[in-house]
């Protein structure tokens, strides 16, 4: 339910905003360009979503595999180090990760992508480890007793039981990514943050409002959808 209202607002904004120039002109008559026109709002929204989707996908694959390795018998000794990296990594602000990526990769979408991936791995990793650790020993013994091999036990018992927390990690990762991708427009990525940053620099409040409304609706929609999916997974 929480997904439907923001999603409706997002669709309405995407339909209405391109034609809202006269309204913004009536509201702020002193502005010569009341409507952001450098890139269409649809293109910005798709670029933003694409960047976040690709980064979250890579972060999920990395975080999930690292989390699985660190909870296997052969990798157990890595667990404290993995935990330490996750805890220390969380104290790095997203802006800092973004700023470190720029000297390595230059301006544009590439440093933003790197920052999103690096930062997005941590929640997935943390939740994967927590989820796999919380699988009741009774379930593991039952699987062993039924003659399940290691792989089958992982795929058919442990991962399904840990799916709820893992999904929560993916959701958090995606939401943080949407926020960081917005700031990424300050280092040259084309996202929904671009109207905001250009509006702030060029003193154009109309651009700022257009970008903020869209990115806010987008974040709430994605959060609602992933939250609904998480509840569905937990109920299984």
């Amino acid at each position: 339910m929480r997904a439907i209202l923001p999603l409706c607002i997002l669709v309405a904004l995407l339909l209405v905003l391109p034609h809202a120039g006269p309204w913004f002109h009536a509201w702020m008559p002193t502005l010569s360009h009341p409507l952001y026109a450098r890139t269409s709002f649809h293109a910005l929204t798709f670029a933003h979503l694409g960047l976040v989707f690709a980064a979250t996908l890579v972060a999920t694959v990395l975080g999930l595999s690292l989390g699985i390795v660190a909870t296997r018998p052969f990798g157990r000794s890595l667990l404290p180090t993995v935990r330490a990296v996750a805890v220390i990594g969380q104290t790095f602000p997203p802006v800092a990760v973004l700023a470190i990526a720029v000297p390595l990769l230059g301006f544009g979408a590439a440093p933003t992508f790197l920052a999103l991936v690096l930062y997005g791995v941590l929640p997935v990793l943390g939740q994967t480890v927590a989820g796999l650790d919380a699988v009741p020993p009774a379930a593991l013994h039952a699987a062993d007793g039924m003659g399940y091999g290691r792989w089958r036990r992982l795929l058919e018992v442990e991962l399904p039981l840990a799916a709820g927390p893992i999904m929560a990690g993916i959701r958090l990762s995606a939401i943080v990514s949407i926020g960081t991708a917005t700031i990424g427009s300050a280092v040259g990525a084309t996202t929904l943050g671009s109207p905001i940053v250009e509006g702030l620099v060029g003193n154009n409040p109309a651009y700022v409002i257009q970008g903020s409304l869209l990115v806010g609706a987008l974040a709430l929609s994605v959060d609602g959808l992933l939250g609904a999916f998480e509840r569905y997974v937990r109920r299984l």
């Binding site: 939401i175 949407i178 926020g179 917005t182 700031i183 943050g193 905001i196 940053v197 509006g199 702030l200 409040p205 700022v208 409002i209 970008g211 903020s212 409304l213 990115v215 806010g216 974040a219 709430l220 959060d223």
Partner: peptide
């Protein structure tokens, strides 16, 4: 909390 920080900061200017 879900709203991106830059958007919230910017929306408060008005």
């Amino acid at each position: 909390q879900t709203v991106p920080s830059l958007a919230l900061f910017a929306l408060l200017i008005g």
